[in-house]
Amino acid sequence: EDGINLEEIREFAKNFKIRRLSLGLTQTQVGQALTATEGPAYSQSAICRFEKLDITPKSAQKLKPVLEKWLNEAELRNQEGQQNLMEFVG
């Protein structure tokens, strides 16, 4: 629908959760960090719904690039050390 690749979103949601957990981050931490930079659309409950795919494809499509960018950045910081990650997450 609307050129939205559901399979891709499903895959990303699954990987997002795995990668988030491997960084040792909670949904709350991700939500707080993103709410600070991106606004309330990225709250803990939004992250939770995204991971469960309990949102419309359109919403998922909107969240995905922001979550992807944030997660990549978080992983980079983590490679530089846990301290850097925690500063990034705030």
Rank of each mutant, 00 (worst) to 15 (best):
A13W: 03
K62Q: 13
R19M: 04
Q27A: 11
Q61H: 12
E11R: 05
N72E: 12
I9R: 02
P40H: 10
S43N: 07
S45C: 06
L21W: 00
A60V: 03
K62Y: 10
L71Y: 11
K64S: 00
E11N: 13
I9M: 05
G90K: 10
Q32Y: 03
S22I: 10
E8F: 03
F12Q: 02
G31Q: 05
S59I: 04
E80V: 12
L23H: 01
A46N: 13
S22W: 08
N72C: 14
K58G: 11
K69R: 13
T26L: 00
G90S: 10
I9W: 03
F50G: 01
I47Y: 07
E75H: 01
R20F: 01
R49M: 06
R20T: 01
E8D: 09
I18E: 14
N5R: 07
G24W: 00
K69Q: 15
K14C: 04
K64F: 10
C48G: 12
K14V: 06
L6K: 09
L6Y: 14
E11S: 06
C48K: 15
L63D: 09
Q61D: 13
T37S: 12
R19V: 00
E73T: 06
F12N: 02
L6H: 11
K58Y: 09
N15H: 11
L21Y: 03
L21F: 06
K14Q: 08
F88A: 13
L25I: 06
T35G: 11
A46P: 08
I55G: 05
S45H: 13
L53D: 05
P65T: 08
N5F: 12
K52A: 15
T26Q: 07
D2V: 04
A60C: 02
E73G: 05
C48Q: 14
L53C: 12
D2Q: 10
K64Q: 09
K17D: 08
D2I: 13
L67A: 05
F16E: 07
F16I: 06
L85I: 13
A60Q: 00
E87G: 10
F88I: 09
P57R: 07
K64G: 04
E11Q: 08
P65V: 11
K14R: 10
L53T: 04
T26G: 05
K62S: 13
A41G: 14
F88P: 13
L6N: 12
I9G: 02
R10F: 11
I47C: 02
E7N: 03
R49P: 04
A46W: 02
T56N: 13
K69A: 09
N72H: 11
G81C: 07
K17P: 01
N84E: 11
S45Q: 14
E7V: 04
Q27N: 06
G39W: 00
R10W: 06
T26Y: 07
F16K: 08
F88S: 13
G31N: 03
Q44S: 14
F88V: 11
P57I: 09
Q79K: 14
T35S: 10
N5T: 12
N72I: 08
Q83L: 08
E68A: 05
I55M: 15
L67E: 01
L76R: 14
G3T: 13
C48S: 14
L67N: 02
R10E: 07
S43C: 12
Q44R: 13
N15P: 03
E1A: 03
G24C: 00
Q61A: 15
I55W: 02
F50W: 02
F12H: 01
E68P: 01
K69H: 06
G81M: 04
A13Y: 02
T35I: 10
T26H: 00
I4V: 01
K58P: 08
T37R: 14
G3R: 14
E11K: 13
A74M: 11
E73H: 09
A13M: 01
F12L: 03
L85N: 06
S59A: 14
T26N: 05
E73N: 07
G39A: 03
S45T: 13
